[in-house]
Write a protein that binds this DNA or RNA. Structure first.
Length: 190
DNA sequence: CGCCGGATTTAA
DNA sequence: TAAATCCGGCGA
C-alpha cells in the first residue's frame, strides 16, 4: 500500500485527509493532520520507545493512540504501522459531518462555523476521546474511519506545530498537511 | 520519589 | 498573557 520510499506516517497522513473519522454518533471529516515518525523522529513520542502511554504508537496501522496534553486536551492519533516501528498521525483539524448536536453539547459552542474544530484538542473533545480509547482500533467498537471516496485532489504542507523542543532537523520536515478548503489550526504562542 | 514541561485552548 | 490541569518520563 505505502510506497517504500515514503515513511508510513506521511503516507497515512495523506490517506487520511478528506476521510471521515467517527466515534459513536459523531463523524468528522479530517482536514488537517500531522505525521509523527519512529524513534529517529525527535518530535515523536515514539522516541520514548514502548511505554505504558506510547505502546499504541507501535501497533499496526489503524490503532488508536490517544494521550493527554497539557493536562487538559486529548490528542487523537492513528498508528501508522508497520507494527513495531512506531509512528502515528495526529488529527489536528476536522469538520462535523454527523452528530452536530452532540459536538455542540461537548464543546459548548456551535461547531458549524469554519474552523470550529481547528486544533487537536478541539477534535479530541468533539469525539469525547480519552485514555480508554488509546489502544483501540479503527473499525472495532465505536471507532470507524472511511477514506475519502473522491480524491481530495491537493493538499498543502508545512512544518509541524508545537514541537519547538525537537531538533532543528525535524522542524525542517513539512509533515503537517491540510486541505486548502479547511481552516488551519492556530499556531500556539511560544 | 519529586520535578519538569508538554503534538493546547480559552478568556481576559 | 496566563491559567487550567495532569501524568509520563527522567534524574536523583
Amino acid at each position: 500500500m505505502a510506497p517504500e520510499t515514503e515513511g508510513a506516517p506521511l503516507t497515512l497522513a495523506k490517506g487520511m485527509l478528506g476521510g471521515v473519522l467517527s466515534k459513536g454518533g459523531v463523524s468528522l471529516r479530517v482536514v488537517e493532520v500531522e505525521a509523527y515518525g519512529d524513534a529517529q523522529d525527535s518530535a515523536s513520542h515514539a522516541r520514548f520507545g514502548r511505554t505504558n502511554r506510547t505502546w499504541p504508537m507501535f501497533e499496526a496501522e489503524g490503532g488508536l493512540y490517544v494521550y493527554l496534553c497539557y493536562g487538559i486536551h486529548w490528542m487523537v492519533n492513528v498508528a501508522a504501522g508497520p507494527e513495531g516501528q512506531g509512528g502515528a498521525v495526529l488529527v489536528r483539524g476536522a469538520e462535523v459531518v454527523r452528530g452536530r448536536g452532540l459536538v455542540r453539547n461537548r464543546r459548548g459552542r456551535d461547531p458549524s462555523m469554519a474552523g470550529a474544530l481547528a486544533g487537536p484538542g478541539k477534535v479530541g473533545q468533539a469525539l469525547a476521546a480519552s485514555k480508554e480509547d488509546s489502544g483501540r482500533r479503527l473499525g472495532e467498537g465505536l471507532w470507524r474511519f472511511q477514506r475519502a471516496t473522491t480524491s481530495p485532489g491537493s493538499w498543502r504542507a508545512g512544518p509541524r506545530i508545537g514541537i519547538g523542543y525537537a531538533a532543528d532537523k525535524d522542524q525542517v520536515r513539512r509533515w503537517r498537511l491540510w486541505l486548502p478548503s479547511g481552516q488551519v489550526s492556530p499556531c500556539p504562542r511560544v
